[in-house]
Design a protein around this nucleic acid. Structure first.
Lengths: 215, 215, 215, 215
DNA sequence: GATGAATGAGACTTCATTCAT
DNA sequence: CATGAATGAAGTCTCATTCAT
């Protein structure tokens, strides 16, 4: 019976990928189940066999995104020893992963926010999850006296908020006028470090690039 | 016939106010023209007399919001002599005005973002407008040597981005669990000043409260 | 503003007539709103403007039928002085009216019964209404010693039940094999009178035919 | 391979029982094959192995009901020597058997009637079958001079019609407000006997209770 | 200017049926 | 024999928009 299960799992992945692309391209509200079905090589009925409705598909895309990001961020943090470097690495890997998956990024940062209260609540919960990871690093940094004492919950949310803004701007810009994000991110990285009273080291960012191997 | 014009203007304002409330409460896509008509004490036909369509109503709400914010921000900046204080005052007045107009804030920060590319593009343009005002202050501050040299376009966008995050969180939180925003804003204010290398003065915020009198 | 109201009223009547025909021809479940719209010369949206849904249309047809029958039955009863004759006249006018409106008869006797508990409950309520009218006559007849004492509630329901059976058989028979109902009704009329211990007079039936003028 | 046949037969019976319950509970149109499959402990594919389609399942339930009733009625008639008593016994056993199998009764009396012309035709055919059995007894009674000459086809249909009404009312009433049927049936029994000019004997009903032992 | 009945394209969803495993 | 994933036609209902009154 694992044959069926495997097939079902594959089909669900296919649907989720297609849905992310469709949602990102046309917007959640404008996307029809017909379109998602066609894009995933399924029938409308097949969609409803795997998901109870359109909302559930968006929620599943959101959760899939969360799982993807969570594993990457956890690994990135674990790879660092310095808390500030870890916080920075978390942010960096979030940015790079979302850039690599533009459709997911758009769904996560834009579509989910405007798709109704159920969805933006979920999206904010996921953001909070990452803010919490960063908060732990900032707390550690304060304990070590590396950065100034500060309300780390707010600070971590602010960091995530800036990231959200960068991503939003990036996914809502047409590819023609879109510029590589690294330029602006370097400025932002420095600002964020300064905002908590940490001295920005170029080396830190460099180090955080390691270990983000398989994407 | 200025009387007629005034009457039309009044009716339009009424519609816009009602629309903002409806959009904020039910979401743009979920709001029907029927609902907006009822909420503004008009009929559906009346609505279409004043606005060519539903999209135009949202766009008008957006522009109305922009006008409101712009005048406040310009006045706030003009009231300051120090560029950093001006930038800070701009941010502060944006925050306070949006908090005072919760429906507009929600439409501007949340609904417009998820209502399709036409709308989030417009919302981002408005954000950029305010970022530009702040950028000018930051440039002046750099010229005066008050803050560190930095890519002020990026920095100003980051400031606006953080503000957007704060507002988003505030409008998407139910009033029960919502906490007064001042607490978190003080932390954020300090972080933003630090992020550009300015020393945060408690006095600055105090001064920026002046002149926010008539809304 | 009575112009609009009149137009709306006319449109509703048109829809109800068309719906009765469609329901009677294809069955309630098999009938689509598309079909009803087409048959009533309206659009699907127009249907939903006047009725909240398909169920409401059936319910309205049922109520319309009830109103039609009620007025006829009340008049028929009022035209008689003898209670047994009145009861008989009630049954007779029910039969003749339903035969004259075959579509309504089928919807009332067949479709409503099988369309779900909400509908057959309503249909039975209407049947009970007529049974109650007959019961009053039977009670009067007992008081006058014209018929045997009996549980008149049950008896009246049984009369209506027999009528329902006759109508059901008639509306479910194709017009080719359908025979004129008068033959069988004369037998049934005699049986019903006997069933309550009344002597059947041919004259009674003859009298009840008068006064059923405008149909 | 009678073993296989028995297994198949058992499975079919299981399906039919489950289907009757589901149809009676949710209505024919509202019942899904999924639901029937689940209720009968099978899969949808299994269902389609035993029956060519949903309609066939309802038809089979109808036929199963007919078989059940037929054997009971034949036995009940054979157990009587007086034709009127036999007719009465037939009606009584029909009533008691249907009351004992509430789901079948509802499907037979209500769901089949509203499920389309194919089904109500079949249900009426079955009713006619029992009407025919009663007609033979009434004819015999007339030949013996026990009851008045009458159109026995119509009379028998009327008897069955009254029974149908009683059953319909009973299966469409919620168990809370449903009252024991015996009270009303005694009234109806007397009415039916009177309707054909037979003197009602209390003893007859008492006798007809015998022999309804093994179901 | 205002009203609200009417339109019709299109949305989401259901479900009897099929068939590879 | 049985399973359940998959299909797709069809269904109900919504809603931005139009226009006669």
């Amino acid at each position: 019976m694992p044959v069926q299960q495997t097939r079902a799992r594959n089909r669900q992945r296919k649907i989720l990928n297609a849905a992310a692309t469709v949602f990102a391209t046309r917007g959640f509200r404008e996307s029809g189940m017909d379109e998602i079905a066609r894009a995933s090589g399924t029938s409308k009925g097949g969609l409803y066999f795997h998901f109870p409705g359109k909302d559930a598909v968006l929620l599943a895309v959101l959760d899939q995104t969360a799982v993807l990001l969570r594993s990457k961020v956890e690994r990135a943090i674990a790879a660092e020893t310095e808390p500030v470097a870890a916080a920075e690495a978390a942010l960096g890997v979030l940015l790079r992963t979302l850039i690599k998956h533009r459709a997911l990024a758009r769904v996560f940062a834009v579509e989910a926010m405007g798709a109704g209260s159920g969805f933006n609540t979920r999206a904010l919960e996921i953001q909070d999850e990452f803010a919490e990871m960063i908060r732990l690093q900032l707390d550690a940094a304060i304990a070590q006296g590396v950065i100034e004492p500060i309300d780390t919950t707010i600070a971590a949310q602010a960091w995530i908020g800036v990231l959200h803004g960068v991503i939003t701007r990036w996914v809502t810009t047409s590819s023609r006028e879109r510029r590589p994000i690294d330029e602006s991110y370097e400025t932002i990285r420095i600002m964020l470090l300064r905002s908590v009273g940490a001295a920005p080291h170029a080396a830190i960012e460099a180090r955080s690039h390691r270990g983000s191997g398989n994407g």
